[in-house]
């Protein structure tokens, strides 16, 4: 579903991503681990075609993100660390707007509220303006946007940082539910615990390079952490 082939990106001589090869299939939750600047966000931006690779390809559902920026984005849903919404619009208005632009203008209010509920937004929130929402509530609207989009692949950039443990846990079970429906998930995260909890595979990145890949079923919590720290050592 998500495939990086020899993907390379440099800015002003600095190599942000070096020859990345990656394949996330439907139903998988792939966690990209690594320090800041390891190239995790660059990878996600390349799949979103917000960046152009210097060489190589980012494929979404078999199609190049660079050659088909709009079509490939239709198949994706993106949840960043902080979901940015229109503060003067209510939660449901934000969701309707994003869904409409994603090509789903047909949702009724009831369906939209259903998505917000499913994402865990409190019951009284959808008709309040987003300006008064907490970070967690905005994150949930972001999840609702992804749900409403019925995306085949999710791109998550530190989605749970700043969420309380309960919200974080709800998020994880939602991810598991979605991957159960065949959605491919690529998640950049620092949260080894959360990665182990919900991920099916993990890749460890450093200075733009994918150093190793492990299957979560083969490794325990402590082992994952030790592996990670080993790779981070100079």
């Amino acid at each position: 579903m998500l495939q990086a082939i020899n993907l390379r990106k440099t800015y002003d001589g600095h190599t942000a991503l070096d020859n990345l090869n990656l394949h996330v299939k439907g139903g998988e939750i792939y966690c990209l681990l690594g320090a800041n600047g390891a190239g995790k966000s660059t990878t996600i931006n390349l799949f979103l075609s917000f960046l152009q690779p210097c060489s190589g390809q980012a494929l979404v559902d078999g199609r190049s993100a660079q050659a088909h920026p709009l079509e490939t984005k239709r198949a994706l849903a993106y949840i960043p660390e902080i979901v940015m919404l229109y503060r003067n619009l209510t939660g449901i208005e934000n969701l309707r707007y994003f869904s409409t632009l994603a090509g789903h203008a047909h949702y009724s209010d009831r369906e939209l509220i259903g998505f917000l509920r499913r994402a865990g937004l409190p019951e009284d929130a959808p008709h309040r303006r987003v300006g008064g929402y907490s970070k967690g509530m905005r994150q949930k609207v972001g999840i609702a946007i992804a749900l409403a989009k019925q995306a085949k692949a999710l791109l998550l950039d530190e989605p749970t940082s700043g969420l309380d443990p309960k919200a974080s846990n709800e998020f994880s079970s939602l991810l598991t539910e979605l991957s159960g429906q065949g959605v491919a998930v690529l998640m950049a995260t620092h949260d080894l615990f959360r990665a182990k909890e919900s991920g099916t595979r993990a890749g460890i990145m450093r200075q733009g390079r994918l150093l190793t890949e492990v299957a979560m079923s083969d490794i325990g919590h402590a082992d994952l952490e030790r592996l990670y720290l080993d790779f981070m050592r100079d």
């Binding site: 979103l48 917000f50 709009l70 079509e71 984005k73 239709r74 994706l76 849903a77 993106y78 960043p80 902080i82 979901v83 940015m84 919404l85 229109y86 994003f98 869904s99 632009l101 994603a102 090509g103 972001g142 946007i145 989009k149």
Partner: peptide
């Protein structure tokens, strides 16, 4: 600046 542009274009809006 707000970051909504990123969010909006990520859904595939032209």
């Amino acid at each position: 600046e707000e970051g909504t542009l990123r969010q909006l274009l990520s859904v595939g809006a032209d």
